[in-house]
Nucleic acid binder design. Structure first.
Ligand code: MG
Ligand code: MG
Lengths: 257, 257
DNA sequence: GGGTGTATTTCGGCG
DNA sequence: CGCCGAAGTACACCC
């Protein structure tokens, strides 16, 4: 599973190692050691000499980590070309990308270790509690939002964006539903207001369009803004245990029964 | 710089290794091999048996990478506790966090390699081309937005959020400026409209408040929406070479002279 | 801790 | 490719 490992490689050996294993596209390559990193593209950055961990995955994605933090200091999600070369007796790695035009350059001053790992098989991955899942559940059980609600569309595209759920209520009024898997903010209220406006613009002038923000909770300013605009809030939870934990024996039907 | 490395460690050795090096808080720890990962918190996920790379940094942050992609499959930015133990003859790693309550669990079925790296010194890091930098430059040179503009506040807090630049124009009218370092979208137009509304609410009823969206470019639907609402667009660039490359010898003054 | 906004956001989906 | 919106977003900043 360890394809190859080098300790304190020479610039030439490191460049060779990097070119070989990144081109094979079948292993994860990493280099740890003293380096200098520059980036130019949508923005630009420079990192002084320091000890970093450089990782190149099979798909050519590049990330450069400093000692702390979840996010890499520099990165490149997709690279059009990734090459190593020796220049002035140091090995440097150049990762470039068109559209957007970006370049990350790593100068390895004192590489301590280079490692190529075979990270072949990835198992299936399932995420639960996403907004998409909420949407599907609520499309199947719109009564969890309101009795008598009938869903007409999911992700209905209007000029201003995609309406999560487009529905009609028991009185036949059109309803725009904006979903949030987490606490709803003023941003969500803005979205909902925009969608309601778009729908009103497409319907006869007198038509009443309701707007419902459905989320597990809502911030205080968002609630105020929502009421100011004549829009509504409906509490729904993204995960089953959320309602169970909060309400003990659930009085209201859960999203995940 | 390599503190310790184990090849195909036993469950006991791996648990010991992980507990020792994650507690010392002075090195980056990684384990590669066959594993199973589950997560429960704001959402929930399961990853089937597969070959993953698990990284724990000095600050206790955890990331679990699959063979491709820039983003980790599972992660934990800050951990309140991170412990390894042996259960049913396998080593498992438990990373937990309160607020939000989250738990990541890694079951190492066939650990191939464990590595502890000293990634001590990090050099300085400088990023250029951020919106914050744009804001500072434009606060110092508001004439780049419009001749006669005087900036009153930066990040002025109103109910609906923070106004990037609050200013008065040559005719004494108040101006709300929303900045974007990249192409401006309908979201930016919504923000600007909200801020203008908030400011109008605080001023005498007759007061005219202008809204300017300043960005390198704007999407077509955003431009339409902007004009509908009586708001304005002004082209400004986040990085110096952007104007230089686009216009050759610059006729307009650059943000970075 | 609540609330808001930025990000080299990344990523997926749709026209 | 342009555009929009979600994300277990993370992260910084203010109140
Ligand atoms: Mg939505
Ligand atoms: Mg802003």
């Amino acid at each position: 599973m360890i394809r190859q490992q080098l300790l304190m490689p020479s610039p030439e050996d490191l460049a060779d190692f990097l070119n070989r294993h990144t081109r094979s596209r079948d292993c994860l390559v990493q280099v740890a050691g003293l380096a200098e990193v520059t980036y130019q593209g949508r923005a630009a950055s420079t990192a002084d000499v320091g000890t970093y961990l450089v990782v190149v995955k099979q798909d050519g994605s590049l990330q450069i980590h400093h000692p702390t933090g979840i996010k890499p200091m520099n990165w490149q999600p997709k690279t059009d070309s990734i090459t190593a070369r020796v220049d002035e007796d140091v090995c440097m790695l150049l990762a470039s990308r068109r559209s957007p035009e970006e370049l990350v350059q790593v100068v390895f001053l004192e590489p301590q270790m280079a490692l190529a790992l075979e990270l072949a098989q990835a198992g299936g991955f399932v995420l639960r509690g996403s907004e998409a899942e909420m949407q599907q559940t609520l499309a199947e059980h719109p009564e969890l939002i309101e009795p008598g609600l009938r869903v007409l569309n999911r992700e209905l595209m209007v000029e201003s964006g995609g309406i999560d759920l487009y529905a009609r209520d028991a009185q036949g009024r059109y309803v725009v539903v904006e979903l949030k898997r987490g606490r709803a903010t003023q941003h969500a209220v803005s979205q909902l207001a925009r969608y309601v406006r778009s729908v009103e613009g497409k319907l006869p002038a007198k038509a009443v369009v309701r707007g419902i923000l459905a989320a597990p909770s809502i911030t205080t300013p968002a609630r105020l803004e929502l009421e100011n605009r004549g829009l509504e809030f409906r509490e729904v939870s993204a995960l089953p245990q959320a309602t169970a934990a909060a309400g003990g024996p659930v009085a209201q039907p859960s999203l995940f029964d």
